[in-house]
Write a protein that binds this DNA or RNA. Structure first.
Lengths: 337, 337
DNA sequence: TTGTAGGCGTTATCAG
DNA sequence: CTGATAACGCCTACAA
């Protein structure tokens, strides 16, 4: 008992085309007939074969999502995936996820591209930071969306990320508190997103009339471990910073751990600010002031942009931008005298 | 220039069947010819159309994964998804993810089922806890895998979860420290997994010759917020517990937050044990002793079980079980006098 | 408004 | 070992 369109047609004593029309809500079908067919469809629990539809229509209704290999279980990328998936499903799309581990496998981008091609994805969103540069080899002629790319590549759309806005708010907050020596726990600066964050912070600090001193910038892995191991380089300085900003929350939390272990009270002895605003930030002790960079909104924005591209909307009006914002919690304080 | 098998055949001056054989590594094809065809395939960058293959083969090479709606950004489920996806891709399968939000939409299970059916998934893994009971309505005749289901449903395979092992280790650890009043921050007990964890803990405590007193069990949401709000009920008791176990890590971390705020030093004034072993556990202060329940292993185990079912392996020998284990960190201590 | 027939890209069953 | 040819389940002109 193969349950296909042919079988429904037989049961309803109509042609396959009619059933097809009913399935696809074509207007021109007689309402009475339509109802009859629908009744049978419901009765036998028939569902059209997605793959066959895709093949016949020449449209896969699938989009690709490329993210980097999850570094140390950073929840940020998990959430990117979750929210992108959800946005896609709501719009009737399927999503094909690929993990690109550029560090370990330089050819992983190729692998991604192959998978994407085989599944006939209609568009690709690259929601990770640092692998854009590998993608030019990929030369695909379908819509592509990046987030926070260095420069707008021709033929692609970019969701701009305004790192500066949040950084400025954070810096202003610190300066208002009286801080002058602001340190930065940076990720590896050869990653473009880390470079961008760094530049944004520097600009924010300079705009405020201060300077981000070289020795106050420590480069470490953008992971829990990285933050935990990197913070001593700042603390052990002859003149350590009175406030520290971090490239992301997990590094900040790692740093917090190390400092707590040394008896340094974050939010009292030193000010600490993260980046991302993971859910956990509200539940550290002290809760972590941070710069919000919501994976949910980013995902959603990226998918929307992709969707518009797919539907051939006007290219001009759709410049997307995500604006970061400072979130005040308990981990900041006035400089300790 | 449609790049399909027909085009390759034309370029290579062979039939489509031959190209198909080359693609699928059929032995009987002449090596020399095969190489020639492969060269052309590589040259033009041709990739077979996955959907067409699925249609022709009658196999979608896709499996479904049902998880519950993410509660408050608990990273546990995110990781379940990530690792399941990865295991599947390695085995050449695609995965279709569905979020079932049973609480808000009782019919979401039906929605899932429909999506799965449309995509012709070959099997389904239900890696969430508490929605098994809704699934009998789903009556699908494809392999299904559960994890930690109450009872082994007929015609399905279950990855057993040995909650007891880890609980016993944890309880023994606490008792060795001298604890006698062990409290429990439970999730809602009408969720089967929460009920199961509770039962396991009770058994572990009873096996050790103690009793899990009713008043020492607090029922709260299994979220950060839940833990933060639930812990006072335990602390405010006339005779509060000297050690608290939690239904999961996020609740434990929430509880930790509340206690820190009250000046209670976890790991000195009170012992605290989580459940799950999220990456964050190593970076709280103090780091959180917990019971490991690795989403990675669970996902992998579940996918393997599903795969074996799909490949028609022997049903008997494949009883899978995941065993939890206690992980000692800094949040436990002797009872404070 | 409905039915007929051909095609989407691939596999699989036959002959040759 | 290779090549026609008929599926797979659905969509879509085109014809009726």
């Amino acid at each position: 008992m193969p349950m296909n369109i042919r079988e429904i047609a037989r049961l309803a004593r109509v042609s396959r085309s009619t059933v097809s029309r009913v399935i696809n809500d074509v207007e021109t079908v007689d309402p009475k007939l339509s109802r009859r067919v629908q009744a049978i469809i419901k009765q036998v629990g028939y569902r059209p074969n997605f793959q066959a539809q895709a093949l016949a229509r020449g449209r896969s209704h699938t989009v690709g999502l490329i993210v980097s290999e999850l570094s140390g279980g950073n929840p940020f990328f998990s959430e990117i995936i979750l929210f992108f998936e959800r946005a896609a499903v709501e719009a009737g799309y399927e999503v094909l996820i690929s993990f690109a581990d550029v560090e370990a496998h330089p050819d992983s981008v190729t692998t991604c591209a192959i998978r994407m091609q085989e599944r006939q994805v209609e568009g690709i969103a690259v929601l990770t930071f640092g692998i854009e540069k590998y993608l030019n080899t990929l030369s695909i002629d379908i819509p592509m969306i990046y987030a926070g790319a260095d420069e707008d590549l021709p033929g692609t759309r970019n969701v701009r990320i305004d790192y500066l806005a949040g950084m400025q708010e954070a810096v202003k907050h610190l300066i208002d508190f009286g801080h002058r020596r602001i340190g930065y726990l940076s990720g590896q600066l050869n990653w473009s997103s880390m470079r961008t964050r760094y530049e944004a912070l520097r600009k924010a600090i300079e705009d405020a009339g201060l300077e981000l001193e070289k020795e106050l910038v420590v480069e470490c892995a953008h992971t829990w471990e990285g933050g935990a191991q990197g913070i001593p380089d700042l603390l052990n300085l002859p003149k350590p910073p009175t406030a520290v900003m971090c490239c992301n929350d997990v590094a900040a939390i790692g740093a917090m751990k190390t400092m707590s272990g040394r008896g340094i009270r974050v939010g009292k002895d030193i000010a600490l600010i993260g980046f991302d605003d993971l859910p956990i930030c509200r539940y550290t002790h002290p809760s972590l002031s941070t710069i919000r960079f919501s994976p949910r909104e980013l995902s959603s924005l990226a998918f929307q942009a992709l969707l518009e591209e797919l539907q051939g909307d006007d290219r001009e009006s759709l410049q997307r931008e995500y604006k970061t914002r400072f979130v005040l919690r308990e981990s900041t304080c006035a400089p300790k005298v």
